[in-house]
Simulated scan of single mutants.
Amino acid sequence: MTVRVTLISPAMSTALRAARFDDESGLDAGGLDAARSAAGGLSAPGLVLVSPSARCRQTAGALGLTAAAEAPAGWAMGSWRGRTLDEVAAEQPGAVAAWLSDPAAAPHGGESLVQLCARVGEWLDALADGGPRVLAVVEPEVVRAAALHALGGPVEAFWRLDVPPLTGTGLSGRTGRWNLRLGADLA
Rank of each mutant, 00 (worst) to 15 (best):
residue 2 T to I: 03
residue 4 R to H: 12
residue 5 V to D: 09
residue 5 V to M: 09
residue 10 P to C: 09
residue 11 A to N: 02
residue 13 S to Q: 06
residue 14 T to H: 07
residue 15 A to G: 02
residue 20 R to Y: 08
residue 21 F to W: 06
residue 25 S to L: 07
residue 25 S to M: 03
residue 29 A to T: 05
residue 29 A to V: 02
residue 29 A to K: 08
residue 33 D to P: 06
residue 40 G to N: 09
residue 41 G to V: 01
residue 45 P to I: 05
residue 46 G to I: 02
residue 47 L to V: 13
residue 48 V to N: 09
residue 48 V to M: 10
residue 49 L to G: 01
residue 50 V to A: 13
residue 52 P to I: 12
residue 52 P to Y: 12
residue 54 A to T: 15
residue 55 R to T: 14
residue 55 R to S: 14
residue 56 C to W: 08
residue 62 A to D: 00
residue 62 A to N: 01
residue 62 A to M: 01
residue 65 L to S: 10
residue 66 T to Y: 05
residue 68 A to K: 03
residue 75 W to Y: 05
residue 75 W to Q: 04
residue 77 M to V: 10
residue 78 G to S: 02
residue 82 G to A: 00
residue 82 G to D: 00
residue 85 L to N: 07
residue 86 D to E: 12
residue 86 D to V: 11
residue 87 E to L: 07
residue 90 A to Q: 06
residue 92 Q to T: 05
residue 94 G to D: 14
residue 95 A to S: 07
residue 96 V to T: 11
residue 96 V to Q: 11
residue 98 A to Q: 15
residue 99 W to G: 04
residue 99 W to A: 06
residue 99 W to P: 06
residue 104 A to M: 09
residue 104 A to C: 08
residue 105 A to M: 14
residue 109 G to V: 00
residue 113 L to R: 13
residue 115 Q to N: 06
residue 115 Q to T: 10
residue 118 A to M: 07
residue 122 E to C: 14
residue 124 L to C: 05
residue 125 D to I: 03
residue 125 D to R: 06
residue 128 A to Y: 08
residue 129 D to V: 13
residue 129 D to Q: 15
residue 129 D to H: 15
residue 130 G to P: 10
residue 130 G to F: 09
residue 131 G to I: 05
residue 134 V to N: 08
residue 135 L to V: 02
residue 136 A to K: 13
residue 137 V to K: 12
residue 139 E to P: 13
residue 140 P to I: 07
residue 148 L to H: 15
residue 152 G to E: 04
residue 154 P to Q: 15
residue 154 P to V: 13
residue 154 P to W: 14
residue 161 L to P: 07
residue 163 V to S: 09
residue 163 V to I: 10
residue 164 P to G: 07
residue 165 P to M: 01
residue 167 T to Y: 03
residue 170 G to A: 04
residue 170 G to T: 00
residue 173 G to S: 12
residue 177 R to A: 15
residue 178 W to P: 11
residue 178 W to V: 11
residue 179 N to Y: 10
residue 180 L to C: 07
residue 183 G to T: 10
residue 183 G to K: 06
residue 186 L to D: 03
residue 186 L to W: 04
residue 187 A to H: 01
